[in-house]
């Protein structure tokens, strides 16, 4: 009987240690415990389930809306607003994250415009003006030679 009792004591002790370890680490807070193991292995990060939700919110925004662009480029903003090219600036210009510091580049090649305007299977004519004879229309010239990209129709 004695040995059973002792074995039981050993088992319960192991169980208690396990539970104490679990709750001890849990008690340190969610910001700490995934980090313990990670720090041993040199992984860095921000920890905690509830914290992460807040951290994701803090992430920087790279692509601001067109209203943001209109603060400086109001003329272009108004011009494009009248036509069908009234979508967001960054669709063509790319994300504006560091824009005043970094110059934004825009691809003015034919291929770039044709990316949307080429006749492609699946592309709906009612949604977008597709170019069927794109190989010959304005051959060897960039589209912007004739069309203003911000308002590409001739009045």
């Amino acid at each position: 009987m004695k040995h059973v009792r002792r074995a039981l004591v050993v088992f319960i002790n192991i169980l208690i240690i396990l539970i104490v370890v679990i709750f001890g680490i849990k008690g340190l807070g969610e910001e700490v415990y995934p980090a313990i193991a990670d720090k041993l292995f040199g992984v860095e990060g921000i920890y905690g389930t509830s914290g992460e939700q807040k951290e994701i919110i803090k992430k920087p925004v790279h692509a601001e809306g067109r209203e943001y662009c209109s603060k400086c480029h109001e003329e272009i903003y108004r011009k494009s607003d009248q036509g069908k090219h009234n979508f967001d600036c960054q669709t063509c210009h790319g994300a504006a994250s560091d824009h005043p510091k970094m110059r934004l580049k825009v691809d003015s090649s034919r291929e770039f415009c044709l990316g949307c305007h080429k006749a492609t299977i699946g592309r709906d004519n009612e949604t977008i003006r597709v170019l069927h004879n794109w190989e010959n229309h304005g051959k060897d010239r960039v589209c912007t030679a004739c069309h203003d990209p911000h308002h590409p129709w001739f009045d």
Partner: peptide, 19 residues
């Protein structure tokens, strides 16, 4: 999530030229 919680739209929605 970081955009929509600031009242913006997701990046893919923002840039879609045809809506």
């Amino acid at each position: 999530y970081h955009r929509i919680m600031r009242g913006m739209r997701p990046a893919c929605v923002t840039v879609c030229p045809t809506g």
